[in-house]
Amino acid sequence: MSIQHFRVALIPFFAAFCLPVFAHPETLVKVKDAEDQLGARVGYIELDLNSGKILESFRPEERFPMMSTFKVLLCGAVLSRVDAGQEQLGRRIHYSQNDLVKYSPVTEKHLTDGMTVRELCSAAITMSDNTAANLLLTTIGGPKELTAFLHNMGDHVTRLDRWEPELNEAIPNDERDTTMPAAMATTLRKLLTGELLTLASRQQLIDWMEADKVAGPLLRSALPAGWFIADKSGASERGSRGIIAALGPDGKPSRIVVIYTTGSQATMDERNRQIAEIGASLIKHW
């Protein structure tokens, strides 16, 4: 058993032996400061991975655009179909130039040979490839079927209504393609630790998130040596930015963190910096 498999397999085991986890309101002070700095709403939640207890939250039940963070949920739905014998990670999917949409750094290189379902999930999560996400959405029946999958998990909040890139429109008060921090954190925890997916599929999902290559300026920039993080970021119109993550010290995840912001006029660099500073406060007061 690899170190990674050891880590995921023991998450339920550690729940019975973990020390009490204490919240630190200092992080919420930073979240509120980020709102002031960005001139935008910020949603935040910090969840204990083992118990599911909410440690801190700010606007946990307000809607925010999901942006590309939905791609983790999408690959969770794909893995659920794999577990049920309805899909194979090794199945190759062929597509054409007409299928390519904006920001497809991986799929645009494989027009001649296509990509496997496994490769598409990797591209969608680690590189946020939009065509990969659309191709995967097609395999499960489209955005409405992803919403149905989430409903069956008990998440009646999170919804996907459109495809890439239209889902990134982020119109104020538009509930399409949105979630709430509390709903996203709970759903992510179920995917990573619950019985919905097999152990192998849970491991695969967290491996893809751990290999994320496009979230460096966010929480990863504040991470001390030896800490673990598996994450997925997102960005969209109207100053929207977000990240969902499982992270913790000693090389294993122990908390879920979800951060969303929307409605800012700030630059992408400034949005990144504010999220990184929230992460730094979280780690300092861990």
Results as ranks from 00 to 15, higher is better:
residue 1 M to T: 03
residue 3 I to S: 12
residue 3 I to T: 13
residue 6 F to T: 09
residue 6 F to L: 14
residue 7 R to H: 11
residue 7 R to T: 12
residue 8 V to S: 15
residue 8 V to G: 10
residue 9 A to T: 14
residue 10 L to G: 09
residue 10 L to Q: 06
residue 10 L to I: 15
residue 11 I to T: 10
residue 11 I to G: 09
residue 12 P to T: 14
residue 12 P to V: 13
residue 19 L to P: 10
residue 21 V to I: 09
residue 22 F to L: 15
residue 22 F to V: 07
residue 24 H to L: 06
residue 25 P to A: 03
residue 27 T to R: 07
residue 28 L to Q: 04
residue 38 L to Q: 05
residue 38 L to F: 06
residue 38 L to D: 05
residue 40 A to Q: 06
residue 40 A to D: 07
residue 40 A to K: 01
residue 41 R to E: 06
residue 41 R to W: 05
residue 42 V to L: 08
residue 42 V to A: 05
residue 43 G to E: 00
residue 44 Y to N: 00
residue 44 Y to G: 00
residue 44 Y to C: 00
residue 47 L to A: 08
residue 47 L to M: 15
residue 49 L to R: 01
residue 55 L to H: 05
residue 55 L to C: 04
residue 56 E to D: 08
residue 56 E to K: 05
residue 56 E to S: 08
residue 57 S to M: 10
residue 57 S to V: 06
residue 57 S to R: 10
residue 59 R to G: 01
residue 59 R to T: 07
residue 61 E to K: 12
residue 61 E to L: 13
residue 63 R to A: 04
residue 63 R to C: 03
residue 67 M to L: 12
residue 69 T to A: 00
residue 70 F to I: 04
residue 70 F to S: 07
residue 73 L to C: 06
residue 73 L to M: 08
residue 76 G to S: 07
residue 77 A to T: 10
residue 77 A to D: 06
residue 80 S to K: 14
residue 80 S to C: 10
residue 81 R to I: 03
residue 81 R to L: 08
residue 81 R to V: 04
residue 84 A to E: 14
residue 85 G to V: 04
residue 87 E to Y: 02
residue 88 Q to A: 12
residue 88 Q to H: 14
residue 89 L to G: 04
residue 89 L to H: 04
residue 90 G to P: 07
residue 91 R to T: 07
residue 92 R to D: 04
residue 95 Y to V: 06
residue 97 Q to R: 15
residue 97 Q to E: 14
residue 97 Q to H: 12
residue 97 Q to Y: 13
residue 98 N to D: 09
residue 98 N to S: 14
residue 103 Y to F: 07
residue 106 V to A: 08
residue 108 E to R: 15
residue 110 H to D: 02
residue 115 M to L: 11
residue 120 L to V: 02
residue 121 C to G: 03
residue 126 T to N: 04
residue 128 S to G: 03
residue 131 T to S: 10
residue 133 A to V: 00
residue 134 N to R: 01
residue 137 L to Q: 02
residue 137 L to W: 01
residue 137 L to R: 00
residue 143 P to A: 04
residue 144 K to C: 11
residue 145 E to D: 10
residue 146 L to I: 07
residue 146 L to V: 07
residue 147 T to R: 07
residue 152 N to V: 10
residue 153 M to I: 13
residue 153 M to S: 12
residue 157 V to G: 07
residue 158 T to G: 02
residue 158 T to S: 11
residue 158 T to A: 02
residue 158 T to L: 00
residue 158 T to H: 00
residue 160 L to V: 12
residue 161 D to S: 05
residue 163 W to C: 09
residue 163 W to F: 14
residue 166 E to C: 11
residue 166 E to A: 11
residue 166 E to M: 09
residue 168 N to L: 04
residue 169 E to L: 09
residue 169 E to G: 08
residue 170 A to R: 08
residue 170 A to P: 10
residue 170 A to H: 14
residue 172 P to V: 10
residue 173 N to V: 08
residue 174 D to M: 03
residue 174 D to A: 03
residue 174 D to Y: 03
residue 174 D to P: 02
residue 178 T to L: 01
residue 178 T to K: 01
residue 178 T to N: 02
residue 179 T to K: 00
residue 180 M to S: 15
residue 181 P to S: 01
residue 182 A to V: 15
residue 183 A to R: 06
residue 183 A to K: 06
residue 186 T to Y: 15
residue 186 T to L: 15
residue 188 L to A: 04
residue 188 L to T: 06
residue 195 E to V: 04
residue 196 L to Q: 15
residue 197 L to V: 03
residue 198 T to N: 13
residue 198 T to S: 14
residue 199 L to Q: 15
residue 199 L to T: 15
residue 200 A to R: 15
residue 200 A to E: 15
residue 201 S to I: 06
residue 202 R to C: 08
residue 207 D to A: 15
residue 207 D to E: 14
residue 211 A to E: 12
residue 213 K to A: 14
residue 213 K to D: 03
residue 214 V to L: 11
residue 215 A to S: 11
residue 216 G to H: 07
residue 217 P to V: 07
residue 218 L to S: 03
residue 218 L to Q: 02
residue 218 L to D: 02
residue 219 L to A: 01
residue 219 L to R: 01
residue 220 R to I: 01
residue 220 R to Q: 02
residue 220 R to Y: 01
residue 221 S to L: 07
residue 221 S to W: 06
residue 221 S to T: 11
residue 222 A to E: 12
residue 222 A to C: 14
residue 223 L to R: 02
residue 223 L to Y: 01
residue 224 P to G: 02
residue 224 P to L: 01
residue 225 A to H: 14
residue 225 A to E: 15
residue 225 A to P: 15
residue 226 G to R: 06
residue 227 W to C: 09
residue 231 D to G: 03
residue 231 D to N: 02
residue 232 K to D: 00
residue 233 S to C: 03
residue 234 G to R: 00
residue 235 A to D: 03
residue 235 A to V: 05
residue 236 S to C: 05
residue 238 R to L: 11
residue 238 R to W: 12
residue 241 R to V: 05
residue 241 R to C: 05
residue 242 G to A: 10
residue 243 I to T: 01
residue 243 I to D: 00
residue 244 I to G: 00
residue 244 I to R: 00
residue 246 A to V: 13
residue 246 A to S: 05
residue 246 A to R: 00
residue 247 L to P: 00
residue 250 D to L: 08
residue 251 G to P: 04
residue 251 G to F: 05
residue 253 P to Y: 06
residue 253 P to A: 10
residue 253 P to M: 12
residue 254 S to N: 08
residue 254 S to F: 05
residue 255 R to S: 01
residue 259 I to L: 07
residue 262 T to G: 13
residue 262 T to I: 06
residue 262 T to H: 12
residue 264 S to V: 04
residue 264 S to C: 09
residue 265 Q to H: 14
residue 266 A to L: 09
residue 266 A to V: 11
residue 267 T to M: 07
residue 267 T to H: 10
residue 268 M to C: 06
residue 268 M to N: 06
residue 268 M to L: 13
residue 268 M to Y: 08
residue 269 D to S: 12
residue 276 A to R: 15
residue 276 A to S: 10
residue 277 E to G: 08
residue 280 A to T: 10
residue 280 A to S: 11
residue 281 S to R: 09
residue 282 L to G: 01
residue 283 I to H: 01
residue 285 H to K: 05
